[in-house]
């Protein structure tokens, strides 16, 4: 049983060193970092990303075993074993979910009220949340992409193309950078969707639909439409940004425009809604 004692303690003295009246945005960002670190769901979603990465490594390990046992003619029929194709949509979902929870967890637990009492300038608050979402997307994305890259280099060794997407390790640099960028963009999109939808379930369902379901759905469309839709889906933007071999329609510049469009649309709609709505 928890016992609460009431003590007749006089009003605590004011902290004379604390009232720093500038740097509201910097302090808001620091507070958002503390909040996201202390959400249990953050660590659960990162665990999901680790599990997806390990599963991707296991699948690659099995693929390499089958490749080694295949005849020389069959080996030429193998597709590129780019681990980011299998793993990254799941990583995008899990890291993006952390971005979404930055704001939906506050709607869900009514703790947005105290947050707005502490930082009443809504642009500052949502800007701080977006900054934290972007940095988490960037750092987590980089870690998971580098893991996939190292894992692929170790498992594929000096095996030739087409199974080895990066015969030289430097060949992987554009993919690693662009994949990280797409994870960061997805995290920002998820945060924008969270501000717009205000519901964790709704936001995660929409995010899952964007990065996991839509690419499967695209396969059932006629070829022309399949390519058009698939080319603008978040997981498929990495090879188009990197300019590597891919079947899609966009140039690197076009892919940059689509990534920027996703982020601006989701964050913009979320920020406008957040700015206008009364807070319960």
């Amino acid at each position: 049983m928890t016992i609460v004692q009431i003590r007749p303690v006089p009003a605590a003295p004011a902290d004379t060193t604390a009232p720093v009246r500038s740097g509201a945005f910097r302090d808001a960002v620091a507070a958002e970092f503390l909040k996201v670190r202390t959400l249990r769901s953050t660590w659960a979603f990162l665990g999901g990303g680790v599990a997806a990465s390990l599963l991707g490594a296991l699948i690659l390990f099995m693929l390499v075993g089958a490749y080694d046992a295949a005849s020389p003619a069959d080996k030429l029929k193998y597709e590129t074993a780019d681990p980011t194709v299998v793993t990254m949509p799941f990583v995008m979902f899990f890291v993006g979910a952390i971005g979404a929870m930055l704001i939906t967890s506050e709607f869900g637990t009514r703790s947005l009220g105290p947050s707005l009492l502490a930082v009443p300038q809504r642009r500052t608050l949502i800007g701080a949340k977006a900054t934290v979402a972007g940095l988490i997307g960037l750092t987590s994305g980089a870690v998971f992409v580098l893991f996939a890259f190292v894992d692929a280099r170790l498992l594929l060794g000096d095996r030739p193309a087409p199974i080895n997407p990066w015969p030289q390790w430097t060949d992987a640099i554009p993919t690693v950078l662009c994949s990280t960028l797409v994870v960061m963009a997805t995290t920002l999109v998820a945060m924008g969707l969270g501000a717009l939808l205000r519901s964790t379930a709704g936001t995660l369902t929409t995010l899952g639909s964007l990065v996991l379901v839509a690419p499967i759905f695209a396969h059932f469309l006629p070829t022309v439409w399949q390519l058009r839709l698939a080319s603008i889906l978040l997981p498929n933007l990495t090879p188009q940004l990197a300019g590597s071999n891919h079947p899609y329609l966009l140039s690197p510049g076009g892919a940059v425009a689509v990534v920027a469009g996703y982020v601006l649309l989701a964050l913009g709609a979320g920020a406008i809604t957040f700015h206008r709505r009364d807070t319960a």
């Binding site: 605590a12 060193t17 604390a18 302090d27 503390l34 202390t38 502490a118």
Partner: peptide, 13 residues
């Protein structure tokens, strides 16, 4: 702590 951090208030407070 989250509220304090957002307003530059120390942990001691």
């Amino acid at each position: 702590g989250c509220l304090a951090r957002s307003n530059g208030i120390s942990r001691a407070r």
